[in-house]
Amino acid sequence: MASQNRPLSPHLQIYKPQITSFLSITHRMTGLFLAFGAVLLASWVISATYGPEAFENAQSLLGSWFGKLILLGLTFSLYFHLANGIRHLGWDFGLGFDLTKVQATGIAVLIFAVVLTVLTWFAGYAIVGGY
């Protein structure tokens, strides 16, 4: 059995923040948040089987300012996780491993996620018509 008192690595308190490590942990955190989003998506669909009243409740909950804040976070998380996931698939093929490329694709992923999030919400308000 492994000893419980061994030092942990990397030592976060002395670890210099870098775009690579920042995006790596962001990939995990967006993944965790998206798992919550999966439960939310499931609940949304399930609510419709309980009839119109339950579904309208779910809709107004998601449409409240707090619901929209969660959905905005989920939109960004999805685009980030999706783009960074493609970055990971590239690495699986052995592509883009040198440091300059890793940093460039990392910044591209961030820009992609922010731009697509803004576009999606802009399109959403334009198509559906917000308040």
Partner: peptide
């Protein structure tokens, strides 16, 4: 990897759909 690759088109389709369903009634949904 397999589920991740499948989720690229599936989630993009869902975002597109969810935007249109954001104000939907039970009947429309």
């Amino acid at each position: 990897r397999l589920t991740g690759m499948a989720l690229i088109p599936l989630t993009l389709w869902f975002v597109y759909s969810a935007v249109q369903m954001s104000e939907a009634s039970h009947a429309e949904f």
